[in-house]
């Protein structure tokens, strides 16, 4: 794994992605502390102002500082994406591993549930779930995003386990009488981790995008600064000024780009066939 990380950082694309992601994480962790203004502090003498020394990203229709709102949005996106990723990873990998290792009816049931969840394209299911609550909270949003967030992990894990369980060291462990739990935790999971990490980077991008989309559509947490909501607000003032829509959009695009760069880089390193094509 460490070797992989070093190889990854030797390539310009993944390196740029990593730098961007580290920046995002730092903003998410320390953003509110770094914010120069209270994001709610209005200044009606200075509304819809463009970028300046005092207000790096300009101000919104109430004269609030957009840079501070951006930093708070970073925290919210980061928090939601981290929670969804953690839950989806645990649930998905567990179910996928069980399906792949146990096979039979258990596999059949889990994969049919996966089929059903995959029948809802894009954010449709998340949207439908969030729509069932009048004022969705952060936890409602996390719930809605986890509902199908685990599916990708389950599919990758299952596919990997199907091949891993036939490997010689696993067969050897089984013939020595190791319990399934022990085989899975010590002999299978460590070997199938890399493709799951690739899946995690793409899922992270998807969750950031889905959360922003839901907030953009007005289904995000109320009274919170979210990039999607800022963007939606910015588009209503598009005819007066462009910076309000520009900043949150670029932020979302950069995080997604960063994940794609890192994910692509990892995938290339892990898949020799792809690498030879490059």
């Amino acid at each position: 794994m460490r070797d992989l990380a070093r190889q990854l950082l030797h390539r310009p694309g993944p390196l740029l992605g990593t730098v961007l992601l580290v920046g995002f994480v730092l903003c998410a962790l320390f953003g509110p502390a770094l914010a120069p203004f209270d994001p709610e502090a209005q200044n009606l003498d200075n509304i819809l102002a463009g970028p300046s020394a005092a207000h790096w990203f300009g101000t919104d229709e109430n004269g609030c500082d957009l840079f501070s709102q951006f930093l708070y949005g970073c925290r919210l996106s980061g928090k939601i994406a981290a929670a969804v990723l953690l839950i989806s990873f645990s649930v998905g990998v567990s179910l996928g591993t069980i399906a792949g290792y146990a096979g039979g009816w258990l596999d059949e049931i889990i994969m049919r549930v996966v089929d059903v969840l995959l029948a809802f394209p894009g954010i449709l299911l998340n949207l439908a779930v969030a729509a069932m609550v009048k004022e969705p909270s952060v936890s409602h949003l996390i719930f809605a995003l986890c509902l199908n967030g685990w599916v990708g992990f389950a599919r990758v894990a299952r596919g990997q386990v199907l091949t891993a369980r036939e490997r010689e060291h696993v067969l050897a462990a089984r013939s020595l009488g190791a319990s399934p739990l022990r085989i899975i935790s010590t002999h299978i999971i460590p070997n199938i981790l890399p493709p799951l990490v690739v899946q995690a980077t793409f899922t992270f991008a998807a969750v950031i995008l889905a959360e922003a989309s839901l907030s953009f559509l007005g289904l995000g947490p109320q009274q919170a600064y979210s990039w999607g909501a800022l963007l939606s607000q910015g588009t209503t003032f598009l005819w007066l000024t462009h910076h309000l829509a520009l900043v949150p959009g670029v932020a979302i695009a950069l995080v997604v780009l960063a994940c794609n760069l890192v994910g692509d880089g990892l995938q290339d390193l892990l898949d020799p066939k792809r690498r030879s094509i490059q």
């Binding site: 922003a212 910015g234 588009t235 462009h242 829509a245 949150p248 695009a253 997604v256 780009l257």
Partner: peptide, 22 residues
């Protein structure tokens, strides 16, 4: 194509409006 997958359509749309409509 990498930029294409990364740019969210909720942002691309408004930016196209700014450039080609406004």
């Amino acid at each position: 194509s990498l930029l294409g997958v990364s740019v969210p359509n909720m942002w691309l749309g408004p930016m196209l409006l700014v450039a080609f409509s406004i």
